[in-house]
Amino acid sequence: MGFLHRFAFSATSIVLLSLGSPTLAQSQDFTKVEIKTVPVEEGVYMLLGEGGNIGVSTGEDGVFLIDDQFAPLTAKIQAALDQITDKPVRFLLNTHWHFDHTGGNENFGKAGVVIIAHNHVRERLKTDQFLKVFDRKIPASPAAALPIITFGDTVTFHLNGQTIHAFHVEQAHTDGDSVIHFREANVIHVGDVYFNGIYPFIDTEHGGSLDGMIEATERILAIADRDTKIIPGHGPLSNRAELVTYRRMLLDVRSRTRTAIQTGITLTDFIASKPTADYDKTWGKGFLPPQKFLTIVYQDLAARSTP
């Protein structure tokens, strides 16, 4: 039995909890979302639903969870976990602060799950935030949703026969991103440093940068081999070769944007020139259209190139 059964959570209580969390409950029908379980390696799984991909380690020591999507999905996530293990969720690690990765924190926290994240994640969650690019205010999370253990550089867990090593990558997707390496299983959960198959959102308002994204992928590639399974923040299960392709795209976009800035091309003219036309068919069909992705990149690089 999962923790929702042991703590007697009802469907009504899940909805009530979600109202106080930064979810999209008012604009999305979560009743239609299905949680899909993808086996990755023995004892390691990826859960797909709505929001960031969830990583799972199972075994005799209990469940180690990476991210938790949206609050109204907690019962469905627990039901999916119950299909693969009868052990309770003990630890939850947030890869960063965004609501589609931390929306279920309050539910899990109230059930006694230990929440862990980088120092900056707790700081972001405990205060109101605003995402200008989406014109959206994200209210501060309640106390039960906050990480109770935080770290600055690295933290290592020894669970389920795995060495689970989490390390901070600076100024990548945000200022508080963590990459989690299951060493024995040869699996890496990279959070939103990697959007598989679509242009990534870079939250420059909260410490993210294109340079940091590229540096983060290089750190991941340094510990990955041809057999490594990579769980991206969004998109299907991936591997080293696909991450190399993603990095190549980011490098090309950075080079083209820097050239435009150095030659005095305005943002409007840059976007109008369709500088990523060769990539748009493959990468431009996600939630972030090419023009919005290029705007974020241009403004980021322009600000950093200002004397």
Rank of each mutant, 00 (worst) to 15 (best):
V190G: 00
R90E: 14
P139F: 11
M213W: 00
V155Y: 06
G104S: 12
T217Y: 04
H98R: 15
F151A: 11
F287I: 10
A75F: 12
P139I: 11
G284K: 10
G191L: 10
I14C: 12
S13W: 08
N119K: 15
I77P: 04
S21Y: 00
D192Y: 02
Y194Q: 11
A260K: 00
G284V: 08
A166G: 09
T163C: 00
M249T: 09
L250R: 02
A185R: 06
Q299M: 13
A185T: 03
K292Y: 08
G191P: 14
G161H: 12
D86M: 10
L47S: 01
E242C: 06
G207W: 00
G55I: 10
V44A: 09
G212R: 06
G49A: 03
I164G: 11
V253C: 01
L250G: 08
I148F: 05
I66D: 02
H165D: 13
T245H: 06
K274Y: 00
F70G: 02
F201D: 07
V89D: 08
T102P: 01
F130A: 15
Q162N: 12
S27T: 04
L221G: 06
G55E: 04
N239M: 01
G284T: 13
D252H: 11
L19H: 09
V253L: 02
T268A: 15
V40W: 04
D100E: 00
T268C: 04
L267N: 10
L267H: 03
H234N: 09
D61I: 10
R248L: 01
V15Q: 07
Y298W: 12
V121L: 07
I66N: 00
F99M: 04
P142I: 04
S21N: 15
S255Q: 14
G212M: 11
R247G: 11
T95G: 07
G208L: 03
Y45E: 03
R124K: 15
G112H: 14
F270I: 03
T268H: 12
A144G: 02
